[in-house]
Nucleic acid binder design. Structure first.
Length: 327
DNA sequence: CGAAGCTGAGAGGAAGATAG
DNA sequence: CTATCTTCCTCTCAGCTTCG
């Protein structure tokens, strides 16, 4: 059934049917109700492809998923994606996933070149982000989940710097002065912000982190193993991991080397994934509302498509959840 | 005469159908 | 084989009719 069929059945023009559905343009209340009643009785659904043709829209949003995500990052991405989808699906938009690694945007480019999406949501940002530069050059509306230095980019983000600072401050206040930070690729803005938060906490405590106790760019198990061996030799008070994969590997390494957590060394992480929430011991972590983060990103991209300039949201709040690993 | 209510025509992209 | 319609469905501009 099309609006033409409805128009024929009710003896009005298809324009009138269209106006009754959209609510745009002049139409009598009685005529409108007659059309809507007919639609209700006959389960009519407008053809979105035809609507897209008329409105020059695809009703798809591309979401860029970093292909190098680990299984421990997945819960974050899953919650984020569900948040994005719950907002978009209520407004007849769908998601297309583009899987790209680092600064390679081949997958996204194919989607954009084939005009399969109206806008793009990036789920992380890099310090020199070529994907952002590409989208700016192409003039494609986009928002980032994650911060970047370009103020013209609409950015939605958790307060990673503040969260890492507060977590570190809590550990310092407990008397754990020699803390180590382990982080992933430093070209990811999120990791840099967490590093800054870590050093902020020391500065606020009137101290500075011990030289060489921040291990960045830990990207594979071999490297992590070497780092952990080094850390254990240095007899530090605690380890702060920038993600749950690193924390999980640290747990395994400590168990193998018969180092007890929290008796011999404290351990804290990010993301609050269920694997570490329920591990023995349970791991102190940061809790963000990733679902709401996704909804906000989706809202912002639809605002951009409608020609609004969404204000750059303030950083989203968090909770530090203290558990057995830092007692 | 002007506002309200409505209609006709055409645009939009891609693929299939038809004419030359 | 190439070029030119035609079709799919919806939206919207421009314009028509009706009525107070």
């Amino acid at each position: 059934m099309t609006i033409d069929d409805i128009a024929g059945a009710l003896g009005v023009s298809k324009t009138t049917v269209s106006r009754a559905i959209s609510g745009n343009g002049r139409i009598g209340a009685e005529t409108r109700e007659r059309v809507l009643e007919y639609i209700r009785c006959h389960n009519y659904r407008p053809n979105l492809v035809a609507k897209g043709l008329a409105k020059q829209r695809t009703y798809n949003i591309a979401v860029v998923w970093p292909g190098d995500y680990t299984s421990f990052d997945l819960p974050f991405f899953q919650r984020l994606l569900i948040g994005i989808n719950s907002y978009l699906s209520e407004r007849d938009y769908d998601i297309i996933i583009a899987v790209d690694v680092g600064n390679d945007y081949t997958s996204l480019k194919r989607i954009v070149d084939n005009r399969k999406c109206d806008g793009v949501i990036l789920t992380r940002t890099l310090k020199r982000d070529k994907t952002i530069a590409y989208l700016q050059q192409e003039g494609i509306p986009f928002v980032t989940v994650g911060s970047c230095n370009d103020a013209s980019v609409t950015q939605i983000d958790n307060d990673n710097r503040g969260a890492c600072c507060e977590l570190t401050q809590i550990l310092l206040a407990k008397g754990y002065k020699r803390l180590v930070l382990i982080g992933g690729p430093s070209d990811q803005v999120v990791n840099e912000q967490r590093y800054e938060g870590f050093t902020d906490a020391y500065i606020r405590a009137g101290a500075s982190p011990e030289e060489g106790l921040a291990y960045m760019d830990v990207v594979d198990d071999m490297h992590l193993h070497t780092v952990l061996s080094d850390i254990i030799k240095r007899h530090v008070d605690g380890i702060v991991c920038m993600d749950d994969y690193l924390a999980a590997q640290t747990l395994i390494k400590c168990h193998t080397d018969e180092i007890r957590i929290p008796e011999d060394i404290k351990l804290a992480s990010f993301y609050d994934s269920s694997a570490l929430r329920n591990s023995v011991p349970s791991i102190t972590s940061i809790r963000f509302d990733d679902h709401a983060l996704g909804e906000e990103a989706a809202k912002a991209i639809l605002q951009k498509l409608d020609g609004c300039v969404p204000r750059n949201e303030k950083l989203r709040q968090y909770n530090v959840v203290l558990r057995e690993s830092t007692q």
